[in-house]
Design a protein around this nucleic acid. Sequence first.
DNA 1: GGCGCTTTGTTCGGTGCCCAACAGACCGGA
DNA 2: TCCGGTCTGTTGGGCACCGAACAAAGCGCC
Lengths: 237, 237
Amino acid sequence: MHQTSRSANRFLQSLSPADFELLAPHLRSVELTNAAVLFETGGEIDRVYFPLNGAVSLVVPLGGGDMVEAGMIGRDGIVGTPAALDSATAINQAVVQVGGQASVAGVAPIQSAARQSATLRTALYQYDQLLLVQAQQSAACNATHTVEERLCRWLLRSRDVLESDLLPLTQEFVAQMLGVRRTSVTLVASRLKEAKLIKYRRGRVEVLDLEGLQDSACECYRAFKQQEARLLGRTMA
Amino acid sequence: MHQTSRSANRFLQSLSPADFELLAPHLRSVELTNAAVLFETGGEIDRVYFPLNGAVSLVVPLGGGDMVEAGMIGRDGIVGTPAALDSATAINQAVVQVGGQASVAGVAPIQSAARQSATLRTALYQYDQLLLVQAQQSAACNATHTVEERLCRWLLRSRDVLESDLLPLTQEFVAQMLGVRRTSVTLVASRLKEAKLIKYRRGRVEVLDLEGLQDSACECYRAFKQQEARLLGRTMA
DNA sequence: GGCGCTTTGTTCGGTGCCCAACAGACCGGA
DNA sequence: TCCGGTCTGTTGGGCACCGAACAAAGCGCC
């Protein structure tokens, strides 16, 4: 059941052997099914997820069933950091955007590991900072940029998280994440298709022209990547 | 120079005597002058501030000199939490919104205190979570709500932070924080004045009808207050 | 009291996105 | 193979907000 080998999750990969060994015995495999809700705003976080593929969105629920995305987590991250460092109450909702697999651990062993290791704590906290960066950049972006710019940013970000040019997404879903009408997404998407930046069909978007998409996206995409590189100590693409 | 008595800063107040004593010897008094920038995105954080009054905004700078607010900190908070828990690189810009006084400490003593006390670490981390809530709620709000709703929310939040119905703010400044045109703020503000919810003159806004403002604000204001109450363990207003 | 700068008020055309409703196309399942 | 549901495309009216430019008023300063 427990794996001593390195995980496909980048956060786990980045840990020192000692820190990894604190967590490894408690990791199990789990399937993240599409659209599953991992935890709700104000609810208890009982598990911490380390995605191996797929993508999870942190969303803010709004009255009327709407929701807006404030962060995206893939195989380079962790879903449920607050539980590891602190009380286990979720401050937002975590929704599986694209299904996949994840390693998962109960809250208790993670908390105990974090109490033992200062370096693990720091790593967890650093990733939490990255979520803050995402949320803050989204706040600024949503306030000032056009739907076209935001859509491009969002597709690029999804591509980075999924590490694939093929994105299994419906326009309806994207519209929700951006907090706009589905028809606006359709309109903009068809323009991007026209410009040969993307192509798509029924729940499947494919990035064709990476540079072109970046040019059409707002500065927020690059801004986030810079902060990400600094916080995770990797080189920028 | 160093004060053993309780501070006017709520975060410091909330600490256990032992934790407070770890910080107290290193606290100095400082004046926060209006519009001062405490740290820049990507810059080093060399001091951590505990405001005693006034307000500090965390803003995301955008190309073209624009900026949008993603969080507001008053005498119930801390400016520079990342420095206390982790590397001292700022992920955003901190601007003094309303001048005032603050206690301030260097990064080194705070970090050393945080290393010594798990309860202090938790308290710092909890406040950081509150910043995340603010940013996420702003992201959702900016994406979906009208300028009127957002202005009301923002005025209410400022009132809470400043603990006063008199808010020393120009429309131009508010417009920047919300990421909208100044003329839009003027238009909406005159409507609110008409409805006797506020009154204002040249850089001074006064809240007249608290309930009325809350009714005109979006749900985001209440949503944040709920999370705040939960995280800081206080009763809701 | 008067000058000058900052802040607020107002105009007006333009447009991006909303909002609602419906039509058509895709795709899986029976 | 057809059927049914999901997904995408399209229309058109309406409005919130933009963008730029200018007018008027408040307030500090000399």
